[in-house]
Computed example of a mutant assay.
Amino acid sequence: MMLTQDIIARLQHVRFVTPSKKRGQHKGSHVSLQYGSSLDFSDFRTYTPGDDVRQIDWHVYGRTQKHYIKRFLDEQELRIHVVLDTSLSMRDEAKWLFARQLVVALGCITLSHDDHFSYSYVGQGIPFRAKGSRFRHRLNEQVAQVVAQSNEPFTTTAHKALPKDRTVLFIITDGLEAISQWEQFFQHVHRSAKDIRLLVIGTDDEQQPKLRGDVALRDIETNEHVQVSLTDEQARSYTARYNAHREQLSELCRRHQIGSLFLTVEQGITQAIFQTMRQARWVM
């Protein structure tokens, strides 16, 4: 299991914030960010924590003693898709666990509000498509079985695993491919959704390695072992290059109008969702 039941229960009160036009023809429980008399009234739904209290209909409360909010015709379902990087650089145990936890968390948020969720990764098409909270447990179990084993670079193959016509597309990756490869990849992604969000994950050791002296390192992609001698100067040089790469990736995202967040495994899934994404106004 990727997430505990306690975390899943907390996620049902989280909602996505997106300016994109809702896609799909079926009703969901996503609350429109645009309120006003210009919206056509449809019906009512039960108030849940996190809803705007200004939308509570107090006349209905007076008759029923229950809180309901107005639902409008533009409250169509969100169609959320996640594409997961399964290249060999993701095989670090802690990083891989965190990446899959993010997939499940985003799925639980989506499914809890009767919106449509799917995810994909290279070589498997779209192994999961569902709508409704009853599928959260299945998602949790299924994602736990996914293995990072793609021998091909994520940026050159992931566009094959992208669906079309989604409201929001999340990309979960460690972002280690060359900037030129990300440039080419970003030229494809807007075919899938207008609201695109890149989640780049890493570890503290990746950014600032603590090893010093003569050490044996294993290339996680080739499984080859190399004897190296690490000095403080070499570590600082590596960290500078690592940070420069992330800044270039962040700038590339801005140019392509792609949202981006850089997360560390050490943050943990609850901080990533309930603090970092909330502060970025990706969720509410």
Rank of each mutant, 00 (worst) to 15 (best):
C253M: 04
A280D: 11
E247P: 00
G259N: 10
G268C: 15
Q267L: 12
Q271K: 13
G268I: 14
I273N: 04
M277C: 09
H256C: 10
L261Y: 02
A272W: 04
S260E: 03
I269H: 10
L252K: 10
A280Q: 15
T270C: 08
E251D: 10
I269G: 05
G259Y: 03
T264A: 03
I273L: 12
L261N: 03
E247M: 06
E266R: 03
F262I: 06
L252N: 09
S260I: 15
Q248C: 01
G259V: 00
T264N: 11
L261K: 05
G259A: 11
L249Q: 04
S260V: 15
S250L: 08
R255T: 11
L252W: 06
Q271G: 00
T270W: 05
Q279E: 12
R254S: 13
M277F: 01
Q257H: 15
L261D: 04
Q257V: 12
Q275A: 07
L261W: 02
A280C: 09
Q248K: 14
I258T: 05
V265E: 06
S250V: 08
F274D: 08
Q257L: 14
E266I: 11
L263N: 09
L261C: 08
R254P: 02
M277T: 06
F262H: 14
V265T: 11
I273V: 15
R281Q: 12
A280H: 15
Q275E: 15
L263K: 05
E251I: 05
G268H: 12
Q271N: 08
G268S: 14
Q279D: 06
T276F: 00
L261Q: 14
I273C: 07
M277H: 06
L261P: 01
R281K: 15
L263E: 09
L249P: 04
E251F: 03
L252F: 06
R255K: 12
C253A: 10
F262M: 09
I258N: 02
E251R: 15
L263W: 08
I273F: 10
F262E: 12
Q257M: 11
